[in-house]
């Protein structure tokens, strides 16, 4: 025992430790409190500035008079449509890839390399996907500037997310479910089909919904691949250009010649986008809660 420790009286030692404890608590709690305040303020700000313009016409009509009046209906439709196209591509491909990676791929260097490449792809800036989409879909496959090109580009961007979350969900299913089925004479695919995928489904769905939320808010991947500044009509085929909420917001906020006039519409657009994204996040959250309650085997 060192001399410095013994020379401090026990009561003072205890007080010092209490002080240290309080400092530690503050260091951790204050940043969190600041962060929460910031988020709350952002919501409050958006609602205060955006709520005024939101009414039935705003949600159901096209923009009019050089976008200074009217609504954002084509943007809502465009965003939903392009997100749907992206999912039609990325969900089946992503789930198949995840099943292969977690159940069939041999545990070797190549598999590990592919898995870490997928993780890296999830971190690539979305503008890079946008440029790649131009090269591959718009000019390469000649899909032109269209819902299809944008949807596929967003799908490519989604894919690593969906593969990673789906693989995680599949790996969380206990091995005894597969083993039990195979000991009864089930083939590997039968064991996966009946005893793994149904139980991984909620986890996979949560991942998909989070990807949806991200996809809806993306501007860069659609910027060069199909989104347009202004159209009065909603797209009726996949080969048409479309309007989208995030791009409309960008236009109103920075590209319009009467920025201060359209500012409330910009806030209204932001609010609608935020509410749609939050709705998807909320669904994902509820599913996660339910699964936590239903996964009795994890107890």
């Amino acid at each position: 025992m060192s001399t410095t420790e013994t020379s401090v009286p026990p009561a003072r030692k205890l007080r010092r430790r209490r002080f240290g404890d309080n400092v530690g608590f503050l260091l951790l709690a204050v940043p969190l409190a600041l962060f929460v305040l910031f988020i709350l303020y952002m919501f409050f700000y958006l609602f205060r500035n955006g709520l005024g313009v939101i009414n039935w016409q705003f949600l159901t009509q096209a923009p009019t008079k050089g976008m200074t009046e009217g609504g954002i209906w084509p943007c809502i439709v465009g965003t939903v449509l392009v997100t749907f196209v992206s999912l039609v591509f990325s969900v089946p491909v992503g789930i198949c890839a995840a099943v292969y990676l977690s159940e069939y791929a041999p545990a070797n260097f190549l598999t590990r390399a592919i898995r870490s490449a997928i993780r890296s792809l999830a971190g690539i800036p979305s503008i890079v996907y946008g440029l790649f989409g131009v090269a591959l879909f718009v000019t390469g496959l000649k899909f032109g500037l269209s819902v299809l090109s944008s949807g596929l580009t967003l799908g490519l961007m989604n894919l690593p997310w969906i593969i990673a979350t789906a693989e995680e969900a599949i790996n969380a299913i206990p091995g005894s479910f597969r083993e039990g089925a195979m000991a009864l004479g089930a083939t590997k695919w039968e064991a996966i089909r009946h005893n793994v995928l149904p139980y991984a489904f909620p986890g996979i769905l949560t991942g998909v919904l989070l990807a949806v939320a991200r996809t809806m808010g993306e501007t860069a991947p659609i910027l060069f691949t199909g989104v347009t500044y202004y159209t009065r009509t909603i797209p009726t085929s996949l080969s048409q250009k479309f309007m989208a909420l995030p791009y409309h917001l960008f236009t109103l906020a920075t590209q319009h010649d009467q920025i201060s006039t359209v500012r409330p519409i910009a806030f209204g657009t932001a609010l609608v986008l935020l509410v749609i994204v939050l709705a998807f996040d909320a669904v994902a959250f509820v599913i996660r809660l339910r699964v936590a309650g239903a996964n009795k085997w994890q107890v």
């Binding site: 005894s176 083993e179 039990g180 195979m182 004479g185 089930a186 139980y199």
Partner: peptide, 18 residues
């Protein structure tokens, strides 16, 4: 597959399916 149908197994830890 046929072998495992003819030779059933009960595991150490009960492993009912959910």
């Amino acid at each position: 597959i046929d072998l495992r149908k003819r030779v059933g197994m009960v595991f150490q830890k009960p492993n009912p399916f959910p």
